[in-house]
């Protein structure tokens, strides 16, 4: 027991105590902070992942505003039953442009990491307006008001600039064209504008705004966001074995 008694040396000498504290905190810092500088090597190299289009970005902000993450996760874990139900497990690369990520930790509703393209736009609208209309046992609140709220995207450029500082590769052109891209993505009939959008954001899907309106509603933005979730990675080109961990 004699070694344990040496703590008296620390307790009786404030300088030695301070140095001791410093050493312990430094070790803790090294272990906890150090790995954060090497986060890049946890992100898989995959093709297809792209930044959100301005409309999807606005939809995502509404998703966060309404607290959807409190009941829906966006993280398919590498477990058999999850992969069977939801599809390929989520990759780190798929949320590399999320600030903050929406992985969530609670599933009152299902995981929606791969909801994109699974249902029609009409289904999403009916479901947002009244979840019970399509899923009788659902406990999700109604979000019908989203369809009545015109999308306020005055600040979309500033948002994109901030995200660029955080590492999302928006170009100057992307930011300059943000308003045009929002309009293009909510009017699929304007093929020239949609093509320009597709060039900037490959595989972006244009969704007819509700009732063909000129200004998209908040619901349109949320639907655009939901319909792209989990759709960007082409798993045929993904080297699965190289990314086993």
């Amino acid at each position: 027991m004699s070694l344990w008694n040496k703590h008296a040396i620390f307790e009786k000498n404030s300088i030695i105590l301070s140095v001791g504290i410093l050493i312990v905190v430094a070790i803790g810092g090294l272990v906890e902070i150090g790995p954060l500088f090497y986060l890049k090597n946890t992100i898989e190299t995959v093709g297809g992942v792209r930044p959100y289009t301005p409309l999807e970005l606005e939809g995502r902000d509404i998703y966060v505003r309404e607290g959807c993450y409190l009941c829906h996760s966006q993280m398919i874990r590498a477990l058999r039953d999850e992969v069977e139900r939801y599809g390929h497990y989520s990759l780190a690369a798929e949320s590399k442009y999320d600030h903050p990520f929406q992985w969530g930790s609670k599933r009152t509703g299902p995981d929606i990491a791969r909801i994109g393209g699974k249902y029609s736009d009409d289904w999403h609208r009916a479901h947002l307006n009244n979840p019970r209309a399509v899923v009788p046992g659902s406990v999700m609140p109604r979000y019908g008001f989203l369809a009545d709220s015109p999308l306020d995207y005055r600040h979309v450029r500033e948002k994109m600039k901030v995200l660029r500082v955080e590492g999302v590769p928006y170009t100057d052109e992307d930011i300059a064209q943000a308003d045009a891209d929002i309009k293009a993505q909510s009017s699929p009939d304007d093929t020239a504008a949609v093509d320009a959008l597709d060039k900037r954001y490959p595989k972006a899907v244009a969704h007819a705004a509700l009732g063909g309106a000129a200004t998209p509603t908040e619901q349109d933005a949320v639907v655009a966001y939901l319909q792209m979730l989990g759709t960007t990675v082409d798993f045929k080109l993904y080297d699965e074995k190289a990314n086993w961990r």
Binding site: Y38, N41, R80, V83, E84, Y89, E240, K241, N243, W244
Partner: peptide
């Protein structure tokens, strides 16, 4: 976790490898 990637462990087990195996078994 180390700068060059995490230590792999001598069993070579990985969660993603395990789920791939699970699905193959299924």
């Amino acid at each position: 976790p180390l700068p060059g990637g995490e230590t792999k462990g001598i069993l070579g087990w990985s969660m993603r490898g395990a789920v791939t195996q699970d699905l193959a078994d299924l």
